[in-house]
């Protein structure tokens, strides 16, 4: 488990902190050094609202190593209201909750995985849940 790598991502994982390109004003998540839209330097922080909608989704029955205890789980491409798309698990789905493309969702903080034994680190990050009615 690469502890420093996960520690470096804390602002994005817990707060959805990305960037706004000062040149073309596209919103970027995660942050980058070069804006992929205009090629300019991107350095201004922008915090996303955490509101978005499901762009696509699927359910994972056979989980990769380290995620077995969570299977089956639903994974989605979520289009944030500010523009960028990100990959995240959907959570807090009720038993009769039908996921659909276009469904409004919001960001919550949840455990992504634990590092095996008792002394291993717990990794938290963003997941998305259906917007409360």
């Amino acid at each position: 488990m690469e502890n420093p790598r996960h520690w470096r991502l804390k602002k994005q994982r817990y707060g959805l902190v990305g960037e706004e390109c000062p040149h073309c004003h596209e919103k970027l998540f995660p942050p980058r050094d070069v804006c992929p839209h205009c090629g300019g330097e991107a350095k201004e922080e922008f915090t996303f609202s955490g509101q978005g909608e499901v762009y696509s989704f699927t359910t994972m029955y056979s989980a990769p190593a380290g995620y077995e205890e969570y299977a089956p789980y639903t994974v989605a491409l979520v289009k944030l209201e500010e523009g960028p798309v990100l990959t995240a698990q959907l959570t807090d789905l009720g038993d009769d909750e039908e996921v659909e493309i276009g469904m409004p969702v919001e960001m919550v903080t949840r455990r992504l995985r634990s590092d095996g034994d008792d002394s291993g680190i717990l990794i938290y990050g963003y997941k998305f849940r259906p917007v409360m009615k």
């Binding site: 996960h6 762009y55 696509s56 989704f57 699927t58 994972m60 056979s62 989980a63 990769p64 995620y67 969570y70 789980y73 994974v75 989605a76 491409l77 990959t87 995240a88 698990q89 493309i101 992504l112 995985r113 990794i123 990050g125």
Partner: peptide
């Protein structure tokens, strides 16, 4: 880190 595999990436594309 979100628990994805290559099958899932392709499933997301195929569904959309």
């Amino acid at each position: 880190d979100q628990g994805l595999s290559f099958v899932v990436l392709n499933a997301l594309l195929m569904k959309r």
